[in-house]
Write a protein that binds this DNA or RNA. Structure first.
Length: 428
DNA sequence: TCTGGGGTCCTAGGACCC
DNA sequence: TCTGGGGTCCTAGGACCC
């Protein structure tokens, strides 16, 4: 077994780049992408970052700034991002079969067995970057190191320092140079160190990545627990985190949204819960699992401190673990009934599928009805096939409501260029 | 007017059992 | 005066990630 070498590849400003990719007119214009319901900024082009707009900033707070600098905002177009993500990932999988999809715009590749085919780790990083640029139009950075945490760090350096030209390889970098770079980066930028822990580290005079690297594992263990101890070891080049090449099935599936309009009635909450439970059931079937319970929650707008506040959740166990949309909806609605209180302005609702297990190893119960189970499976298969072929939402349960008033709007969404025939880009 | 959504893991403390 | 002890399971909360 070789000593592992990890390369982390991620797309620069992923959502924003997807938008400008298909719309050359906005190539060098400040662009940002907004969250569901056009609430927060969730992605920024480099021009928007340069204006000091932070991730997660509420859109209404930067309206004036946007007008002043001509920032163009898009609603989220997940169909487009998901599809572009698949293209990037499949290019990488061709080059490095040992790959973990870490997020929609990031892959960890284990390259120690293949890097020689490209002439080395650094060369392979450049090959990845060039091929993705050529085949998808997207710019990526690649960072390599002997551990995942160091690959993340290398990627950070590649992104922030023009000298690297988008590719940083810590393996071939002489150690003194590596330590110099570590001394120059804030401890809060380490993968696994968030705001809280960064503040506590600084109080202990651990300010840079190098400081953290030089802190004894014992201290990290005692002060912060096993996770930070592992991070410290990874920074010293001891690989503690392996590649998760087959994604483990999700242990919970959450579907929730804020409302686009004030909701007070039970009927509208019911529509929302039916809609979310249906979506959750689809995701559950996609991974071949069943859920033994479903949690429902509702809440008012916590930012409106002058309005009466209420939030509640309830877990409803299922008689028998299921992936049937109708059974999950029935359980969810029973939960909603038990927590609904009239007289509140609801802002958000959601469902969580929990106690998830594989459908194959489902426990049979005394009252198993094989025929009913078979009918259910066939009905769900038809539902899923129709929605896959003709687009999500083609076939839904009537209780979800048609064009509900509470649904979020996507007034700024770009065309779904790559996944809808009627929205393909047109070349004149 | 307007403040995202979806995940994971670890830990501490209580309930419960023998 | 002197109040067992150890193990497991579950849950809530806190921390992190993108």
């Amino acid at each position: 077994m070789n000593a592992p070498i990890f390369t982390l590849v991620d797309v620069n400003n992923f959502y924003a780049s997807c938008e400008s990719n298909f719309n050359p007119a906005i190539a060098n214009v400040p662009v940002c992408v907004l969250s569901n319901g056009e609430g927060c900024v969730v992605a920024r082009s480099k021009e928007v970052k340069a204006l000091g707009v932070k991730m997660g900033t509420p859109w209404f707070q930067i309206r004036d700034l946007a007008k002043e600098h001509g920032i163009i905002a898009f609603s989220s177009n997940y169909a487009l991002y998901q599809n572009m993500s698949q293209r990037v990932h499949s290019i990488l999988r061709d080059m490095s079969p040992d790959l973990e999809t870490y997020s929609i715009d990031e892959c960890f590749c284990r390259v120690d067995t293949v890097a020689h085919l490209y002439g080395g780790v650094d060369e392979m990083g450049h090959a990845m970057k060039d091929r993705i640029k050529q085949w998808t139009g997207l710019a990526v950075c690649a960072g390599s190191g002997p551990t995942k945490t160091l690959a993340k760090f290398a990627n950070f350096l590649a992104k922030k320092n023009a000298v690297f030209n988008g590719v940083c390889d810590l393996i071939s970098m002489p150690k003194p140079e590596r330590l110099r770079w570590m001394a120059g980066v804030d401890v809060g930028d380490v993968w696994g160190v968030g705001q809280r822990i960064a503040a506590r580290l600084r109080a202990m005079h651990i300010n840079s990545v190098l400081d953290l690297r030089n802190t004894s594992p014992k201290t990290l263990r005692a002060q912060f627990g096993v996770v930070m101890e592992r991070t410290g070891n990874e920074l010293r080049g001891i690989s503690c985190l392996g590649l998760e090449d087959v994604p483990p099935p999700r242990k919970q599936i959450i579907v929730s949204r804020s409302f686009g309009a004030v909701v007070t009635s039970f009927d509208e909450l019911r529509e929302s819960i039916v809609t979310y439970a249906s979506t959750a059931a689809i995701r559950l079937r996609e991974q071949g699992s069943v859920a033994a319970a479903i949690q429902v929650f509702v809440s008012t707008n916590a930012f409106k401190t002058d309005e009466p506040q209420y939030s509640a959740s309830h877990v409803v166990p299922l008689v028998d673990p299921s992936d049937d949309t109708r059974e999950l909806i029935a359980a969810a609605l029973a939960g909603l009934k038990s927590i609904y209180r009239s007289g509140y302005w609801y802002k958000k609702s959601g469902v969580v599928l929990i106690d998830i297990s594989s459908k194959e190893i489902r426990q049979r119960t005394l009252f198993d009805d094989d025929e009913a189970r078979d009918r259910s499976a066939r009905l769900m298969a038809v539902l899923d096939r129709a929605n896959c072929e003709f687009g999500r939402g083609t076939l839904t349960l009537a209780a979800a409501g048609l064009a509900p008033r509470w649904a979020l709007r996507f007034s700024k969404r770009s065309p779904r260029y790559t996944t809808r025939w009627d929205e393909l880009p047109i070349v004149k």
